[in-house]
Design a protein around this nucleic acid. Structure first.
Lengths: 341, 341
DNA sequence: AATTAGCACTCGAAGAAGGAGAGTGCTAAC
DNA sequence: GTTAGCACTCTCCTTCTTCGAGTGCTAATT
């Protein structure tokens, strides 16, 4: 079976109509609404062919046709033309993102909010890996009762902190010494360079405080490791509830549960390849519960290195053409925003 | 119409049965299952009385009875006896909460998780107000391109930070001066004592850097104000989906939306009175969408002052007796954990 | 050879009809 | 005051019917 121009047009029409209405599409509708200049009967013949090719399917005899997963794939790969982002959306994005935002987390949060609001789907964003950033400052500050705050500042202004236990034997005056010791030895190190091997060089310098220092190093290491892990941001989680195909609780439930599993989401968002927009349709996704969903992902880079992923989750029947445009534009803007920071 | 002992027993039985099964309860069931030693016919007469009193209602003629909101209220106020917390639950709570947790946020997070898991309802927690804590340390640290990190540490080990813009004219060496200036003047101040009036005393000391200092003070003030606002923690959001009365998407949807509105939740959780466990049934709650839900709240205190609220959201048909026990116990444990910090 | 009109057929959705069953309220007997 | 008996009501479930949309096939048309 060969794909010809008319088959393509009919397939295109079926998909557009189904995306718009969520109802199976009949031959009559196609012939009339998308005036192809042929009769419903002709359309029917073509549809039979398209079905044989696996691009569309019938929910049951005597229903209209619905795009199959393969059909969406063909559409996305060969038929779809990206819609330009509407001017208002464009203005909104630039206005919100490129000004007044000074911190990575806030930047990402807003991006997620915009993405979900503009598309009415669910936005997922994997935050940048901080591995390439260098340590700017480390500080140890005593609180009461044998506890202290350990603060770690990266060169980009990111701050991590945690409360740690401190042995009673450490005197107030010593904190400054520890702080400068840590700074002298660790400042300028990037997170990827961090490795326990360098502990030894510090140990040598202050043998009598060995144990506490070792503990401190462990805490720093631990904090940084945690921070290196990417974080997932969500926006518009409940937007799935808008879709008619998710009317029954059972279908939504497992999906919402997946969205609460941050680790699973990280897996879902980790890209197959380094560049560009990737569309995963239905069971092309990693998780069974996403078999009725499509996921559009795009990666963002800094200095040529992959630092995060932006994702948009909707029904397989999603408005790919519009969504792809927005995802691309937002990714570019986010990258620009990051560069500014 | 007078309430007598038998009426009370029958009402109690109806409520317990309905809580357990979610099905309207018939006279036959009551007479047999809760052996009261009377016939269904007698029960029917009593039920007619209870209905007249507004404590139970019929979904339709020839259905069994269902507790009304008033019925639940009577049950909660007069009939219910608190169930002791199961030993395993007790052990679990103590094990998770009282060890290894060094930060307020983590403590609250775990509490929420436990509360929702033990009850299968949705947990809401309003974090403590930090107003009474004193400033321990303020630090200004330069990053690149006219930006700096402002870090604020409270005596309990809580750290707040934000990135601020810094005029080009400030030299690297000056940061230390600013930092110590801020510390000298602000350290020891509690958040509730914070007021812009004290700026003047600092201004006097360093007139030529007036503008930047003013900006710094503004930033600190702003950060602290944000932090003073209580935060809401959620656990087990999707547990509502377990309840048969929330089978239809439309009913759940608005509720889930409410749960995403952190501001609304704060309002929902702010207590009417200072002490003890409060149960709000159905439309006693502030929001229309909660008309089929009940909310159990308990406040927790430190040094006699109210610092936060713990809440549990379930259907009006919730297992009050068990839930109240767990809420009480968790509140006490949380308080204990806070005291330790 | 491709297209179209015509027509019988299929299937699901929506409504109507008809029990079955649970539960009630009333009455009269205990 | 309590209970047995009974007619009655109402929902739920199943079955049946109708309606309409849409199909696939065949024969006629271009």
């Amino acid at each position: 079976m060969q794909m010809d121009e008319r088959k393509r047009m009919i397939l295109h029409a079926i998909i557009l109509d189904y995306i718009a209405t969520a109802d199976p599409v009949g031959s009559r509708t196609i012939a009339r609404k998308y005036n192809l200049g042929v009769s419903p009967a002709t359309v029917r013949n073509e549809m039979a062919d398209l079905e044989e090719m696996g691009l569309i399917e019938q929910p049951h005899t005597s229903a209209g046709r619905v795009p199959s997963q393969l059909g969406y794939r063909y559409y996305v790969d060969c038929l779809m033309q990206k819609e330009p982002v509407a001017d208002e959306a464009r203005d909104l994005i630039c206005g919100e993102l490129l000004n007044r935002i000074r911190e990575t987390d806030a930047l990402i949060q807003i991006t997620g909010k915009l993405l979900s609001e503009l598309t009415n789907y669910t936005a997922l964003i994997l935050s940048p890996v901080l591995a390439k950033h260098r340590l700017k400052h480390i500080q140890l500050l005593p609180i009461e009762n044998g506890r202290a705050v350990l603060m770690i500042v990266l060169e980009n202004g990111h701050v991590e902190h945690r409360v740690i236990e401190v042995p009673e034997s450490i005197r107030e005056e010593e904190y400054a010494a520890f702080t400068s010791l840590l700074n002298e030895n660790l400042r300028g190190l990037s997170l990827e360079q961090w490795q326990t091997g360098l502990m030894n060089s510090i140990f040598a310098k202050l043998a009598d405080r060995m144990k506490f220092l070792s503990y401190l190093m462990e805490q720093i290491s631990d904090t940084l490791a945690l921070e290196q892990a990417q974080k997932v941001f969500l926006g518009g989680t409940l937007n799935i509830l808008n879709q008619p195909e998710f009317k029954q609780i059972e279908k939504v439930r497992s999906l919402l549960e997946l969205l609460e599993e941050k680790n699973a989401l990280k897996e879902v968002l980790s890209p197959d390849k380094e560049n560009g927009v990737i569309i995963k349709i239905g069971s092309e996704n990693r998780y069974e519960v996403m078999k009725d969903c499509s996921l559009i992902t795009a990666t963002y880079h800094l200095n040529g290195k992959l630092i995060g992923t932006l994702g948009l989750l909707g029904p397989t029947r999603m408005e790919y053409s519009k969504a792809v445009g927005i995802v691309e534009f937002l990714t570019a803007t986010l990258k620009e925003g990051m560069n500014k920071l």
